[in-house]
Amino acid sequence: MQITDWDDAYQNGAYIADADRLVAGWAERADTFRTDHAGQELRYGKDSRQFLDLFRPDRALRGLTVIVHGGYWHKFEGRAFSHLAAGPLAAGQAVAVVTYTLAPEARIADITQEVRRAIILAAQKVPDVPLYLTGHSAGGHLVSRMACRGVLPEDVAARLAHVMSISGVHDLRPLLRTEMNAILRIDAQAAADESPALQTPIDGVRLTCVVGAQERPEFLRQNDLLANIWTGLGADTRAVHIPDTNHFTVIAGLERPDGTLTRLLLDQS
């Protein structure tokens, strides 16, 4: 299928029924989660958005999960998605939910480095356990960047048990053709440097690319693209389409320990 309108290709809300209600529901459930679970704010930098919230389980520790939020790199914050920690937390994971500086104040390369620093800090605070990374949309891109060779320090990369990108954009070059790029400020070089699909993965890294089966065709393409390319570059990859879910509903699978995404992330299905 030839795409001529790239702004439309990356438009989600206009094609999802009750989109505003779904987005409002994220904040409500996130607030409820933080009321019920005390998190520790940890700062990985001096700027206002350079922090993560760390939640520790009340049962035997089985690993560390890091969650990176979406919003096309220029919207939201980690605390709007605190509720996504619920599933891994109940499964015995310590969970770090990352907030980062948004575009246009930060370029995507800057955000990549912020997420890197956040993961290093979380790994220091929760040592000696397997590390799981997951993120949605822009967050899916960012956790995939962490699986690229040379991004994470070797000692942290060695702890990676699984990276799960949810509805990620892995080749940034089409975004050069969107009006949104006035905010993102991506040029051709940055698109190449920050596209996981154009980078080499950590040898043997395990990557699952997850997408809602009812998402826009471009998100289905981007999801399968990375799993396909990295298979030939030494990564252990898998592409999964979650039935009856779209770009806004697919992430609900992290909200319960028996949720589809929780089980996929922690290798329980």
Rank of each mutant, 00 (worst) to 15 (best):
A80K: 06
I251A: 12
V97R: 03
P104N: 12
G78F: 02
A227V: 07
H162E: 03
Q11K: 09
A60I: 11
A239R: 07
R107M: 13
D8T: 14
H241C: 08
V115I: 15
V250H: 02
P153A: 03
A17K: 10
R263S: 09
T112A: 15
R256I: 13
F76S: 09
L226I: 14
A24C: 13
A38W: 05
V156A: 09
H247V: 05
R216T: 04
G232T: 14
A106D: 02
N181E: 01
N223T: 15
A191R: 10
H141L: 05
P104M: 14
G87K: 11
A103L: 12
E28L: 15
A197N: 13
G253P: 00
S48P: 08
V250S: 04
D244Y: 07
L226Q: 13
Q124C: 04
A188E: 15
C209M: 15
P243D: 12
P201R: 04
L233G: 00
H162I: 03
T245Q: 02
G212H: 00
Q214H: 07
T200V: 15
L254S: 09
I202Q: 00
I186D: 01
M180W: 14
V156G: 06
D236R: 15
L265I: 09
A90L: 08
T231H: 14
A158Y: 00
L254A: 04
D171G: 03
E28H: 14
R145K: 14
L172P: 04
T134V: 05
V156T: 15
E194F: 05
A182V: 09
Y44P: 06
L266I: 04
H141I: 03
F55W: 05
L54C: 06
V250E: 05
A239P: 06
G78H: 04
A191V: 11
G135R: 13
E77L: 07
V205R: 01
I183A: 08
D8N: 15
V97I: 13
I251D: 11
A118K: 00
W230C: 08
Y44K: 05
F76Q: 06
S137T: 08
D187S: 07
L207C: 13
A17E: 09
Y44S: 02
R263H: 10
A91G: 00
L225F: 11
Y44R: 02
A182S: 11
A138K: 01
L220E: 05
G39L: 02
R29P: 07
T237C: 11
G140Y: 12
T237G: 08
P127R: 02
L220Q: 14
D8Y: 10
D58K: 09
H69I: 06
V151H: 03
S144W: 05
V156C: 10
K75I: 07
W26F: 12
V129G: 10
P174L: 06
L220Y: 08
T32M: 12
A197K: 10
A60D: 15
L176E: 05
H247M: 08
S82T: 06
I251K: 07
A38S: 13
A235C: 08
A213H: 08
R185D: 11
K75H: 10
A118W: 03
H247P: 07
R263W: 09
V143E: 02
T262S: 01
L226C: 13
D128W: 12
A86L: 03
V95W: 02
D267W: 13
E114Y: 04
